[in-house]
Design a protein around this nucleic acid. Structure first.
Lengths: 134, 134
DNA sequence: CAGTATCCCAGATGATACTG
DNA sequence: CAGTATCATCTGGGATACTG
């Protein structure tokens, strides 16, 4: 993923032939924003604002502290989340969406919208694909 | 993908729909549309139109036929892709985006746009995060 | 061509226990 | 509280070989 050729969104076939990695301009974004657990984390931060570690841990059910930490670190490294450590007793750490992370809002909104409008279609397609058999 | 959870015996479906606290509305969509390999596949189909198995296989480098088949089946089952089998010799199978799949276009466009605008910021954030090697 | 069938391993996850 | 450390597990994916 070191390739950073600025590609014109046009003439896709030429690009793909030259560099298959660039055939899909959305993959890099997906890897960053929609990797495992990141959606619920970002959404939670986006929807409920600044939160402490435990709050996130409780809000996102079934996530272990280890994994939550991993994901949070990744998000922090990617600049989507800001971590603030308060040296108190007991310690307090707060996470919040960064400026950059906030730019994802319209994207999230559109995805939620698509889901609201089409998730049922997907369900129906699945049932049909799986056949009349129960 | 399904975060299988033994929910408390409360009304789970109502929770998910009405109470964002307990469910991330975008996760279901992400699981369907942005699971592994699906982005490049959908993008390829979206960008280059109807294609045969081999074409996809070549276009999306580093994907094995096994995995490509799996993903294609999943996409077909979810109603995002249409598979057409031509009983010829040699056999010919063509894949194309479905009507439902096409509704993802604006989403894809927005994601690509976000990437074009912000991927650099992410890179920079990473370097800065990794940088202070001390 | 368009897949299947196997074998296998790495890396992601989960469970549990332990600190500053 | 906010993690880390460790160990066991498990599934996806890769490599390879084989058909209709």
């Amino acid at each position: 993923m070191t390739t950073e050729t600025s590609r014109p969104a046009t003439d896709a076939s030429a690009d793909a032939a030259a560099d298959p990695e660039l055939a899909c301009p959305i993959s890099p974004v997906v890897d960053i924003v929609f990797s495992r657990w990141t959606s619920p984390i970002l959404w939670s931060l986006h929807a409920f604002g600044r939160q402490r570690f435990v709050e996130l841990e409780r809000r996102i059910e079934n996530i272990t502290p280890k994994v939550l930490t991993q994901r949070l670190r990744q998000l922090e490294r990617d600049g989507l989340v800001v971590r603030t450590y308060h040296p108190e007793v007991p310690p307090r750490v707060e996470y919040e969406i960064s400026e950059l992370g906030r730019t994802l809002s319209p994207l999230f909104a559109q995805i939620a919208e698509w889901g609201a409008a089409n998730l049922e279609h997907v369900e129906r397609a699945r049932r049909q694909y799986d056949g009349p058999r129960a």
